[in-house]
Amino acid sequence: MKMPLALLLSPLLLLLLLFLSALPSSQMSSSPPPSYDSDLQALLAFKHSLSLDPYNSLLDWSPRHSFCNWTGILCSSRHQRVLSLNLTGMSLLGPISPFLGNLSFLTVLALKNNSFQGRIPPQLGRLSRLRILRLSFNQLEGSIPTTLTSCRSLQVLILSYNLLSNTIPSQLSLLLQLETLYLGGNQFTGTISPFLGNLSSLIKLGLEKNRFHGSIPIQLSMLTQLKQPYLWGNNLTGTIPPFLGNLSSLTDLELSNNKLHGTIPPFLGNLSSLIDLELANNKLHGNIPIELGMLT
Rank of each mutant, 00 (worst) to 15 (best):
G286M: 03
L220Q: 02
G293W: 07
H261D: 08
G89P: 08
N162H: 04
Q155M: 05
P229N: 07
E278Y: 04
G262N: 11
F116I: 07
S10D: 08
L277M: 06
D252I: 04
G245E: 05
L295D: 01
S25E: 15
S272I: 08
Q139A: 12
N258P: 03
T237W: 00
L15W: 12
N113H: 15
S62W: 06
L268E: 02
L103F: 12
I144V: 10
S273G: 00
L17F: 05
L202P: 01
N234R: 09
G142E: 01
P34G: 09
F19L: 14
P63L: 02
R78G: 15
L103D: 02
H65R: 12
G269T: 02
S31P: 00
P98N: 15
L44H: 01
F212T: 01
L163K: 07
K2P: 14
S115I: 01
S84G: 10
S97G: 07
L223E: 01
N257W: 04
L279E: 04
T167V: 10
K209M: 11
L220M: 07
G142S: 08
N56H: 02
F116E: 09
L124D: 04
G89A: 15
L58W: 11
L20R: 06
P33Q: 11
G125T: 02
F46A: 04
G238R: 04
F243A: 03
L164Y: 04
L274M: 10
L279K: 07
S38N: 06
D252E: 13
S115L: 09
N235G: 04
G245C: 00
G238S: 00
N162Y: 04
A22E: 04
T71Q: 13
Q155I: 07
S128R: 15
N113Y: 15
S115C: 13
L18S: 14
N166V: 02
Q228R: 12
A6F: 04
K204Y: 14
L244H: 01
G190Y: 05
N56C: 10
L274Y: 10
L157K: 05
D53C: 14
Q171Y: 00
L157R: 04
Q80I: 11
S153I: 01
S97I: 14
L178D: 01
L15A: 15
T189H: 00
R131M: 08
L106T: 13
S115F: 14
L17K: 03
N114Q: 13
S104I: 09
A280C: 13
G286K: 01
F46Y: 06
D60N: 15
D37M: 14
S104A: 15
F243Q: 02
S91Q: 15
L159P: 00
K2N: 13
K112D: 15
R131I: 01
L103A: 11
R131S: 12
P63C: 03
F267M: 07
L59A: 12
I264Y: 03
P289T: 09
D39T: 05
G118Q: 11
L12D: 05
L50P: 05
L148G: 03
S76F: 14
T88P: 05
